[in-house]
Simulated scan of single mutants.
Amino acid sequence: MLVLDVWFFAIAAPAVVFAGLSKGGFGSGASFASASVLALVIEPGLALGVILPLLMLVDAATLRPYWGEWDWRVCALMIAGGLPGVALGAMLFSRTDADVFRVLIGVISLGFVIWQVGRAQGWIRLAQAALPQWVGVVTGTVAGFTSFVSHAGGPPAAVYLLSLKPGKTEYQANTVLIFTAINIFKFVPYAFLGMFTVQTGMANLALAPFALFGAWLGVKAHHLVPERAFFLLTYVLLVLTGTKLIWDGLT
């Protein structure tokens, strides 16, 4: 049950601003931290249901600032892969209980941190040459799946996108367009799975200004702020929330 009390909004409002900031300016890689944080205080399915319409609102707000900066061919490949990934996520979700998803979201959270730290330290090396197009479809499928179960499509998408060595703004624009489409794909199965309720709708209305504020901050920060401090905070947050979710799911 979702209770819209002071405690919920004290947790949800900063998380939603953070999601908008990440999605609006930093490739959406860390935006799923908001779902991880919310899953600490409400059932994971409801957490995902609260966040999705807000992410879609951020998508709509950030399409215009990055309009035309994306690579249509690259985006089309990943969007084509994203649809079966979303379908796979929906099938798994309908057959799995909440504790499994607490553990899964926690593992994805910790995996994201390990992947990013590994890249920064040189332990994980991405392809020096652009990966072939079929890899774009496969990573799109993985991104669709992880996006469905935890709004965490950014890391798998980045594997292919970063191999193409785009500029910062092209990379950001590609993620905006790709996840706009994937989030639209997710909406109908989320509705059929009962992840939207009257309470989640009321929460969306109350949290919408925070999402838009975060998106505005993200677009501004994209051109002004280095990513290092932002992602350091993200990693700390994800380690804490991921560990707590795994503990809750297993115990």
Rank of each mutant, 00 (worst) to 15 (best):
Phe26Leu: 11
Phe26Cys: 09
Ser28Glu: 12
Gly29His: 02
Ala30His: 01
Phe32Leu: 04
Phe32Trp: 06
Ala35Tyr: 08
Ala35Val: 14
Ser36Gln: 12
Ser36Met: 13
Val37Asp: 10
Leu38Ser: 01
Ala39His: 03
Ala39Arg: 01
Leu40Pro: 09
Val41Thr: 10
Val41Asn: 07
Glu43His: 09
Glu43Lys: 08
Pro44Ile: 01
Gly45Trp: 05
Leu48Arg: 10
Ile51Ser: 09
Ile51Trp: 04
Leu52Trp: 00
Leu55Lys: 05
Met56Ser: 12
Met56Val: 13
Asp59Met: 04
Ala60Val: 10
Leu63Glu: 07
Pro65Ala: 01
Pro65Tyr: 01
Tyr66Asp: 01
Tyr66Cys: 02
Trp67Ala: 14
Trp70Asp: 15
Trp72Thr: 15
Val74Phe: 13
Val74Tyr: 11
Leu77Arg: 14
Ile79Val: 15
Ala80Arg: 13
Gly81Leu: 08
Gly81Gln: 07
Gly81Thr: 09
Gly82Asn: 11
Gly85Ser: 08
Gly85Gln: 05
Gly85Val: 02
Ala87Met: 14
Ala90His: 00
Leu92Glu: 06
Ser94Lys: 04
Ser94Pro: 00
Arg95Phe: 12
Arg95Asn: 12
Arg95Val: 11
Arg95Ile: 10
Asp97Gln: 12
Val100Ile: 12
Val100Asn: 03
Phe101Trp: 03
Phe101Ala: 02
Phe101Thr: 01
Phe101Asp: 00
Leu104Gln: 05
Ile105Pro: 00
Ile105Arg: 02
Gly106Asp: 03
Ser109Trp: 09
Ile114Val: 15
Trp115Ile: 06
Gln116Ser: 14
Val117Gln: 08
Arg119Pro: 08
Gln121Ala: 14
Gln121Pro: 07
Gln121Trp: 13
Trp123Ile: 12
Trp123Lys: 09
Ile124Tyr: 01
Arg125Trp: 11
Leu126Pro: 09
Ala129His: 15
Ala129Glu: 15
Ala129Asn: 15
Val135Gly: 03
Val135Arg: 05
Thr139Gln: 04
Gly140Phe: 02
Thr141Trp: 10
Thr141Arg: 10
Thr141Gly: 14
Val142Cys: 07
Ala143His: 10
Ala143Phe: 06
Ala143Lys: 12
Ala143Asp: 02
Ala143Ile: 05
Gly144Val: 02
Gly144Ala: 06
Gly144Asp: 01
Phe145Met: 12
Phe145Cys: 07
Phe145Thr: 07
Phe145Ile: 08
Thr146Leu: 07
Ser147Thr: 10
Ser147Glu: 03
Val149Glu: 00
Ser150Phe: 00
His151Thr: 00
Pro155Ser: 05
Pro155Lys: 06
Pro156Asp: 08
Val159Met: 06
Leu161Pro: 09
Leu161Ser: 10
Leu161Thr: 12
Leu161Val: 13
Leu162Phe: 11
Leu162Ala: 09
Ser163Trp: 04
Leu164Tyr: 10
Lys165Asp: 11
Lys168Phe: 05
